[in-house]
Design a protein around this nucleic acid. Structure first.
Lengths: 198, 198
DNA sequence: GTCTATACGAAGATAGAC
DNA sequence: GTCTATCTTCGTATAGAC
């Protein structure tokens, strides 16, 4: 938020570390203590950078994780919905395989763990916004390629939901098969939606 | 495990309470202490009934939550895959609406929070088994109704993944729309798979 | 401005009284 | 066999030394 840099700042390292740890063990199992250690920062520094404590950290970790997905989507959606979907799938497939099925989606982790309330707490709101943004990007691209708006929105929701669920399922079962089955189905669906704009 | 009863035993109450609390706040935010209080049992009793502690509780809570889904599926799948899907959807839609979007799926919560390991820990293994069982039931029904086996398995994986993801998304956003969009897409897909057995 | 040292509560788990 | 009282460890968060 100050000066953009090549070298990641301590603050950025902490956020990235939080996203990674949350995607592996979940939000509540990620302590600020370990987080500081993992990021090679003193415990006090985390509260210096994140005065609102763990909730702020969780919120920014969600936004960080979401932004990575958003960037990949934006970059490839210019080549069409199928290319965007493939980028989305490739990203998550890589997370699963590169981590030996130990990492998942930090956004989903926060969405599932944080209790919801009347004024939705910031981490949950950030998670909801992440899901909504991904859906929006996919739906916009589908519409631009001739898919009926309602169908585009529903198909985008299905895509995001299915991929999030599939990541969790493959992580739990320690095999890539469920994810690949879902990926194959989604590719067929999006392809069909373009052939028959409904 | 001893004598079947009408009146739920203390042990059963604890497991049911665990599943509910986990579906609302996540696994790690569910303490054995609160669980005992919520189930009107002394703390010591939980360790009497569940000598392996919290891991055993989590495992049984997952199995309990899974069994509820399994029963609903089995009951309705006799009327065909679409009826089974509708029962699956109705169950989760009810969880979301009846709780005011405060509850979700305990199986997913455990799947996302518990760290995976070389010898997958029992709670994660139970979650993986739950997902696999639901997929199996759906896939079997689809095959029995003429769907190609590979397609049946993939469609079942898509269904379970999408519903799990949709429950989390609707819970986070506090609106039913994402879930309903996903539900509508899945119904169309399963219906189409029966019309064109491929 | 950075970080060390600490406060304070709650976690999981158990020992041993009833 | 049930449960109370307690042990130990770790959580979030902060006060105040550098």
């Amino acid at each position: 938020m100050t000066t953009p840099r090549r070298q990641p700042t301590a603050r950025q390292r902490i956020v990235a570390g939080a996203a990674d740890m949350i995607s592996r063990r979940g939000l509540n199992a990620t302590s600020v203590r370990e987080l500081a250690k993992h990021s090679q920062a003193p415990l006090g520094s985390t509260y210096h950078y994140f005065p609102d404590g763990k909730a702020q950290l969780a919120t920014e970790a969600v936004q960080y994780g979401s932004a990575k997905v958003t960037r990949a989507l934006r970059r490839r959606l210019h080549a069409g919905p199928v290319a965007g979907l493939r980028a989305f799938l490739k990203l998550w497939r890589g997370v699963l395989l590169d981590s030996g099925f130990r990492a998942g989606c930090p956004v989903l982790a926060v969405a599932v763990e944080e209790p919801t309330g009347e004024q939705n707490p910031p981490p949950i709101a950030a998670a909801a916004e992440a899901f909504a943004e991904w859906q929006r990007l996919l739906a916009d691209s589908l519409r631009e390629h001739g898919t009926d708006p309602a169908q585009a929105a529903a198909l985008a929701a299905l895509t995001v939901a299915a991929v999030e669920g599939a990541v969790a399922m493959s992580r739990a079962s320690q095999i890539i098969q469920p994810f690949d089955q879902v990926a194959q189905q989604l590719e067929a669906l999006i392809t069909a939606a373009l052939d028959r704009p409904a």
